[in-house]
Design a protein around this nucleic acid. Structure first.
Lengths: 154, 154
DNA sequence: CGATGATTTCAGTGTCGACCGAAAGCAGTG
DNA sequence: CACTGCTTTCGGTCGACACTGAAATCATCG
């Protein structure tokens, strides 16, 4: 007997959340993200998320605040509605990824500073030089690559 | 009165360790890494590291094991020496960085799977599609970029 | 085969952060 | 202005994990 689509979708959400948990995003935050990417309709209130993801209202609140803060989720309030509605902000994923690439490239400032401290001692700076060389290249190429990123599909 | 070079180097090590702590590497592990990148001579025993970095023998042992495991540090034992010597393995930084790039690109398998689960429902897969599009591009370009990485300096 | 000096193991401690749920706060409505 | 949801705040719990230091283990040497 085969499992239903919704079951498989919630398993997918869990995998999705697990991935981002490894990157430091709280599990519940990752679940919200995954859920908002595939739910229908696209907007949900905090209460609905709490129900659907079986998480406390407090956790939902904290994580929504965080996600709204980094821009991945947007909050919308409407006159005549006491409940705010949250939805995915697809646009923000570019910034999100860019931050990750920058984090990698930023090691270069570290290695560069180290090289400076070791200047005049080529013997001793050998090891750092190898590492600095690599990161130097990355800090050139990653931003350049990023510039060439494609526009969203139509 | 100006601070000595060694003082500034140990401040650098601390900054270095702090950076990698954000990426999930234990503080002491990061210190070992930074220290081994700039110490003279290049090899140190666990006992020396423990002294120099003011960390317990246990922490040093655990972290060295981890670093040797991921390849960033190599262990060398010598006949007639009871103490093993540890040193930086510059070569391993390429793998280390590659793993990071792969981690980013690997989200694509996630979005791809999600798209599959939503096939036949274009309306609902809109949001995921945007994200999948971006990661699809990355999972093409990052490995390609990486292929073009420069060789180590002479 | 002790003795020595090093490393690893391990139990215990402290810290930190995710999560919960109750209480307070905040619209919007009759 | 009280009432009805919904949201945020906040104290408290729990589990993970980095770190320590002592004890066990291991390798080399006399």
């Amino acid at each position: 007997m085969s499992v239903g689509r919704e079951t498989r979708l919630s398993a997918w959400i869990e995998r999705f959340a697990a991935h981002f948990a490894e990157e430091g995003i709280p599990l519940i935050g990752g679940r919200i993200l995954g859920y908002l990417l595939i739910c229908q309709p696209v907007e949900r209130t905090a209460a609905e998320l709490s129900q659907e993801l079986e998480a406390s209202s407090g956790s939902i609140s904290t994580n929504l605040k965080y996600l709204v803060n980094v821009g991945l989720v947007t909050k919308r309030t409407r006159r005549g509605r006491q409940a705010a509605e949250y939805r995915i902000n697809e646009k923000a994923w570019t910034d999100f990824i860019q931050r990750k690439l920058n984090a990698i490239a930023s090691v270069q400032t570290l290695t560069e500073d180290g090289m400076r401290l070791l200047s005049g001692d080529p013997e001793r700076s050998m090891r750092l030089r190898t590492v600095d060389h690599l990161y130097g290249w990355l800090s050139e190429e990653l931003p350049a690559l990023w510039e060439r990123r494609p526009a969203s599909p139509k």
